[in-house]
């Protein structure tokens, strides 16, 4: 082979690696769109709404307490329906509660979601009907534990896979999901609660959007080659849209106390941003699994480094 000036200039990000006809080494996640990312969104919405409901009740904001309890119940119920529809054998969904298995984030998550779904439904039912208020309060209080777990276990769920972009992001993903959940719940509460009662919801939305934006930036920057799917292609476009929408919606939330229009714009932008985040994460996982480079190069580097040692 002679060297030719027509050869492509080597790029810095060109990773030298060998593969079997460019085929992926691992299987890509088979979870469907929109089920899986929509569940991630609804689970986050439910979990963060629960936390807000508890504090709204404790600080004497009945209207906010009521809307957030309903959002928490609706999110958990809708998410559960999506999860069941996602199964290859939906009629066997109860097998999820056949055992409690700490090594499986999906088993742990099924129990968390079952608790969150039941408790948030009880809390919402009590708030809407006015029946058994003490039991409703107790159920709501318990969701202060199950809520944050519902919103964050899903990060462990995706990270505990062989998908390089997900596995390597196990530090950032929980914070991304937590921020996204806060922004989602703050947005829905802003949209459904009278402005005068929605001050804390606006604060939750703004803090959530800030956390979501910061964690997404970390995820894109810290992982090097493995983080490439977060920056490129369809996932990259979804995540940049998410960042713009979340940041914009978060800033608007700071002003949303003054106008109905700003409230609506902020709430919709944050909701769209949170959804883009969730869809972008699934897309990044698919892209990460599809290209053998992301599996082979880091493993080869690890082997070569240990051989030198």
């Amino acid at each position: 082979m002679t060297s030719s000036t027509r050869e492509r200039e080597p790029r810095l990000d060109d990773a030298e690696f060998r593969s079997y006809y460019g085929r992926p080494v691992i299987k890509r996640p088979i979870w469907h769109v929109p089920h899986m990312p929509a569940y991630l969104y609804l689970g986050g919405l439910s979990g963060a709404s629960s936390l807000m409901a508890v504090l709204a009740r404790a600080t004497g904001r009945p209207r906010l307490a009521r809307t957030t309890r309903i959002a928490a119940a609706a999110g958990a119920a809708g998410g559960t329906v999506l999860l069941i529809a996602e199964l290859g054998r939906p009629t066997r969904f109860l097998n999820m509660l056949r055992m409690f298995k700490p090594s499986s984030p999906m088993s742990v998550g099924s129990w968390i979601l079952a608790a969150q779904g039941g408790l948030s439904a009880a809390a919402a039912a009590s708030a809407v009907t006015g029946i058994l208020p003490a039991a409703g309060d107790a159920a709501a209080l318990a969701t202060a534990v199950t809520g944050p777990l519902t919103a964050t276990y899903t990060a462990v769920l995706v990270a505990d896979t062989a998908v390089p972009a997900w596995h390597a992001g196990y530090r950032e993903l929980p914070f991304l999901f937590a921020g996204s959940a806060l922004a989602s719940a703050g947005a829905v509460a802003m949209l459904t609660t009278p402005r005068a009662d929605a001050g804390p919801a606006r604060a939750v939305a703004a803090l959530g959007a800030a956390a979501e934006t910061a964690a997404a930036t970390m995820l894109e920057r810290r992982l090097g080659l493995v983080g490439e799917p977060y920056r490129e292609g369809r996932a990259g476009r979804l995540l940049s849209a998410a960042r713009a929408l979340s940041a914009g919606g978060g800033l608007l939330a700071l002003l949303a106390g003054r106008s109905r229009a700003a409230t609506v714009a902020s709430g919709l932008a944050l909701t769209a941003g949170a959804l883009c985040t969730r869809f972008g994460i699934l897309e990044a996982g698919r892209a990460s699994a599809a290209d053998p480079k992301y599996t082979v190069v880091p493993q080869r580097e690890r082997l070569d480094a240990s051989a030198v040692r």
Partner: peptide
């Protein structure tokens, strides 16, 4: 992350958020 989330919500409710962000 779950604890941070709870902290952020508590801060939003217990801080001076109403004076800052709402009327």
């Amino acid at each position: 992350a779950a604890l941070t989330m709870a902290g952020a919500v508590a801060l939003s409710f217990l801080g001076s958020s109403d004076r800052l962000l709402g009327r």
